[in-house]
């Protein structure tokens, strides 16, 4: 299935969770925040939060800023 991740199309497995996608991309869960269709997914829910085709995911972290 396809999801939209940070504005770009990403192919992932059927039944993928937020955790699946983070692992697929090699992103450590520690210092990121995840939004699924504009709702925040708490870190504790990354495994159980399953994704559907067409879901919009945002994964953000901290960068240098003023």
């Amino acid at each position: 299935m396809k999801i939209i991740l940070n504005g770009e199309s990403l192919e992932t497995v059927e039944g993928a969770s937020v955790e699946t996608v983070l692992k697929q991309l090699g992103i450590s869960r520690e210092r990121v925040a995840v939004e699924l269709n504009t709702d925040i997914v708490p870190k504790a829910d990354y495994e159980k939060q399953l994704l559907s085709d067409g879901d919009k995911i945002e994964i953000v972290h901290f960068v240098g800023g003023g």
Binding site: L5, N6, G7, E8, L25, G26, I27, R31, V32, A33, E58, I59, V60, H61, F62, V63, G64, G65, G66
Partner: peptide
Amino acid sequence: TVAVRRVNLDRSKESLL
């Protein structure tokens, strides 16, 4: 202070943190 931005999907790039 830090800014909140999309993660870089190219994991070869380093992070400030």
